[in-house]
Amino acid sequence: MRPLVSVNKLFRVFDVSKPWLNRLLERRNKALLTAVADVSFGIPERTVYGLVGESGSGKSTIGKIIVGLLAPSSGSVEIEGVDLFREKDEGTVDRIRSDIQMIFQDPYASLNPRWKVGDIIVEPISSRGGDTVGVANKLLEQVGLSARDATKYPHEFSGGQRQRICIARALASEPKLIVCDEPTSALDVSVQAQVLNLMSDLKDDFGLTYLFISHDLTVVRHMSDTVGVLYLGRLVEEAPRDALFDGPKHPYTQMLLQAAPKLDGSVREADIPKGEIPDPINPPAGCVFNPRCPFAVDRCRKELPELRKLGDHRVACHLAE
């Protein structure tokens, strides 16, 4: 079966150089940041794919490319077999667009403060000239707010309630895929639980597919069916949730799981990873993780490991077995 989303050899390079005059005076070359490098994965319908990584891992960039907010530098993203950036037929583009929605991290910035909540929610429909009668009220009730809230403005709501409004807007065009970019990292724990539970319920009710992007391992573990681990723009490991968390194969995944806080406070100082994420403008040669990897051998410093199949896992490591 064809997956709903398939990402093929995706690259995205940002030009982060200074203006040309500064470059000329300081005799510097263009600085290019490869935010996403050679990433391929698929998301089957009605599943949750969790993308986890630390800052600079490229997880948000991948999310933005999938929803069409950013263009890929090379490679492609196909949704239901359609590549939004190459498709010429406007009708098809519009149909696919209405199948994709996104929930953002900051519930304060993601709602227009000058619009009424009801208008915000139905914008995906009204902008296409669709019929919006009663839609906002129904959606508000589905996300646990009341129909009366439609006439209020965003500032009258708390962070958790705003995120519910964002979810209602995301549902308005009856999408198949929702890309969730750190949807709960700005929320308090008890509110996060409400929002995560709501998202789980809606997934079952509406038959949704999620791409769930987060830096928080525990949240990704709670939500996802399959998890992909990103490091410096590369997919280093991918596996079904339990396989990944119970038996991580890539040294980076192992390190991340080890460093994550445990409730029994069992992290020992000896286990704590050394070093930090290297500068993404000048990534290390060979395997990008080799400078921090406790097992690195000569080959790792020279040769970039391919993502290879290993049981349920896909791992980009020469040594994993």
């Binding site: 724990v189 008890s190 996060q192 639980a193 409400q194 995560l196 539970n197 525990t218 806080p261 409730l263």
Partner: peptide, 15 residues
């Protein structure tokens, strides 16, 4: 409501 404490559960207990 902490996912950390409820690993493996389908739903989080919410307040």
């Amino acid at each position: 409501s902490t996912p950390l404490a409820s690993a493996g559960k389908e739903r989080l207990n919410q307040i």
